[in-house]
């Protein structure tokens, strides 16, 4: 007789002890992709990693997490357990704490009820009833406890017993769409550069079409013969995936640009990707074709060094404060 057994799942809880900015936290989550492909971003500063099926031992995984997040120099606490709440409780203890599967109730019993997400007023009521630890809470009868404190008490009761069933929600993987051309000769003339650019953009737009996406900006990287790189982000006025439109915009940006030496590599990366194909309004609010306007804005920016602007007015006493300018967008 064969018995089906499932691999024990172990979650790592990564708790950043200091305040993180949203952009820094995003970068840290991207770095954690190297540890596990399944990362649950619970909130800024708190993430869970599903290590089911990953080779190695928990202490090795924890060391790997610290290595990946070392460049960010953020103080970290890491815990490991079979469910999210127990892993979180383990992370709140000092050192890299591991709770073995099946040992959750014993591990959680001496810990304070402050670990649960309970309103201060309710927490005080529980303390008055003599419930100060998770073990005390776990020993309470389930039915009367839930009837007295409401539906959310069922979740507290389960968490205190080590039976937290909060689902693991992995964050969506970012799709990186880029095309590059390296090692295929040197480019010293504008016509050669535009030719290479056209080929690279064709591949990029084919990938975008397959994914059903369009982009709001392009990151263009030119690698020079002396080893340096020139990188620039080129905004697209109206999100597009059309090769001709993107080609005209990039050409407008590069026309007249000079470089200290020959170009040996070219990379174009899609930025600000969004779902959808080409926008085609049914009732256009303006007569102009959005693609022509996008190319025009890029050309004007290349010629004048500034983005074309739109004037705005407001009520004010001083004449010069009655208007301001903002970048022109479709």
């Amino acid at each position: 007789m064969h018995t089906l057994t499932s691999l024990p799942s172990l979650l790592l809880c990564v708790l950043a002890d200091a305040e993180q900015s949203a952009s820094l936290w995003e970068a840290m989550l991207d770095a954690l992709d190297d540890v596990s492909p399944l990362v649950d971003d619970a909130r800024t500063g708190l993430a869970y990693l599903d290590m089911r099926g990953m080779p190695g031992e928990p202490h090795e995984w924890m060391a790997h997490v610290r290595t990946c997040l070392a460049p960010f120099a953020a103080p970290l606490s890491i815990g490991a357990a079979a469910d999210k709440f127990t892993a979180y409780a383990a992370a709140r203890r000092s050192g890299d704490t591991i709770c073995s599967p099946g040992d959750e109730a014993r591990f959680l019993a001496p810990l304070s009820i402050d670990l649960l997400d309970i309103d201060e007023r309710l927490r005080e009521r529980l303390r008055m009833l003599g419930v100060t630890t998770l073990g005390d809470l776990a020993r309470l009868p389930h039915g009367p406890f839930v009837r007295r404190f409401g539906v959310q008490a069922a979740q507290w009761h389960a968490a205190a017993r080590g039976e937290d069933r909060t689902p693991f929600l992995p964050r969506a993987q970012r799709i990186v769409i880029e095309a590059a051309s390296f090692g295929e000769g040197r480019v010293e003339e504008e016509a050669q550069l535009f030719f290479a650019l056209r080929l690279v953009l064709a591949r990029l737009c084919a990938d975008l079409e397959r994914c059903g996406r369009r982009i709001g900006a392009l990151e263009l990287t030119l690698e020079l013969e002396d080893g340096t790189e020139c990188r620039s982000e080129i905004p697209v006025a109206s999100p597009s995936a059309q090769e001709k439109v993107l080609g005209d915009i990039v050409r407008a940006k590069l026309t007249g640009a000079t470089f200290p030496c020959a170009i040996v590599g070219l990379r174009v990366r899609a930025m600000q990707t969004e779902e959808g194909g080409e926008e085609m309004p049914i009732f256009p609010t303006v007569d102009a074709d959005p693609r022509s306007v996008a190319v025009l804005l890029a050309r004007l920016e290349a010629l004048t060094g500034e983005t074309p602007q739109r004037a705005r007015t407001r009520a004010a006493h001083a004449l010069e404060r009655r208007f301001w300018y903002e970048p022109w967008k479709l």
Binding site: V286, P308, Q309, R310, A311, L319, F323
Partner: peptide, 21 residues
């Protein structure tokens, strides 16, 4: 350029490109 005068004359500023040169 003084945009409030343009707005008073009925120019739809959202559709006016202002290019600095």
């Amino acid at each position: 350029l003084y945009p409030p005068d343009l707005a008073a004359a009925g120019v739809v500023l959202e559709r006016l490109l202002v290019v600095s040169a």
